Amino acid sequence: MILPIVAYGDPVLRKVAKDITQEYPKLEELITNMWETMYNAHGVGLAAPQVGLPIRLFVVDTAPFGDDEELDKEEQEQLKGFKKVFINAKIEAENGREWDFNEGCLSIPDIREDVKRKPEITIKYMDENFVSHTETYDGLLARVIQHEYDHIQGILFTDKLSSLKKRLLKSRLDKISKGKIDVEYKMKFPNIKKGR
C-alpha cells in the first residue's frame, strides 16, 4: 500500500525517532509499504518519519544510481546491488574530508541543493530479521545512508545549508508545507488550510 509522504513543516520530521523491537505491530507490512511508497515516488531512500512514524527505521535502494556514467564501474555495480532495511541504526563514525553532492528529499519536493557530508561512515543496525550488523560504507552509498539516518535524528538536508541559502529557500519551503506545489506522489501537508 502506498503511504502518503509527510511534507516539510510536519513536527514528526523534527523528532528524534525511537528504537523498536521485533514486536512492533505489523512491522513486515510497514516495511513492504515503505518500499512501495519509495518506488512510487522514485526515491532511493525513505525513513519512517517521512510516513509519519517517529521510529528508527529506514529503507535504501540505490539501484537508480547504478546507471550514473560519472561513477566508475565498481561503484556502479555496488550501487545497483544495494537494497537494505536499517532498524535502530546508530552511526558510530564518520571519516574523511567533507564533499559536496546535490541532494533532494521526498518530503521537500522540487528543492535540490549541494550538501557537505563526510565520505565514509561506520554504522551499526539491525536488518528486517533483527540480525545485528556493523558495516562501513563510502561514497554515494554512505551519503544516501547519512541522509536517511538524519531523518531518524530529526534532521533535514536543508538544516545543513548556509543561513543565506536557508533564507533564500524560506518562501519555497513555506509553500511546500501549505501544499502549494505540484507533486506526482501522495503527500500529507501539515499547513494546508482546512475548508478550502
Rank of each mutant, 00 (worst) to 15 (best):
A47T: 05
M38F: 00
K84R: 15
D150Q: 13
A41R: 01
A48R: 00
N129V: 04
G104D: 08
D61V: 02
H133T: 05
E135A: 11
F157Q: 07
Q78K: 15
H133Q: 07
I123Q: 07
I123N: 07
T122V: 02
H151M: 07
L168T: 09
G96P: 00
L156A: 04
K166F: 01
I123A: 06
P119R: 12
V85N: 09
L79Q: 05
K83N: 10
P109S: 10
A93P: 01
Y137T: 11
W99V: 12
N95W: 04
K166W: 05
L79S: 05
I145K: 09
G154P: 05
K84Q: 13
E148G: 12
G43A: 03
H42A: 14
P109M: 08
V131Q: 14
E94N: 01
L46G: 12
I155Q: 12
C105R: 12
P49A: 03
G139Y: 05
F157I: 07
E75N: 02
Q153H: 12
D67S: 12
M38Y: 03
E135C: 08
K84C: 01
D67C: 00
E92N: 09
E103A: 13
T158G: 02
T62H: 06
G96I: 14
K170Q: 14
E74A: 06
A63I: 00
E69S: 12
E36R: 11
E120F: 00
P54K: 00
T134P: 00
H151T: 05
T62N: 00
L46A: 02
L57R: 01
L168C: 02
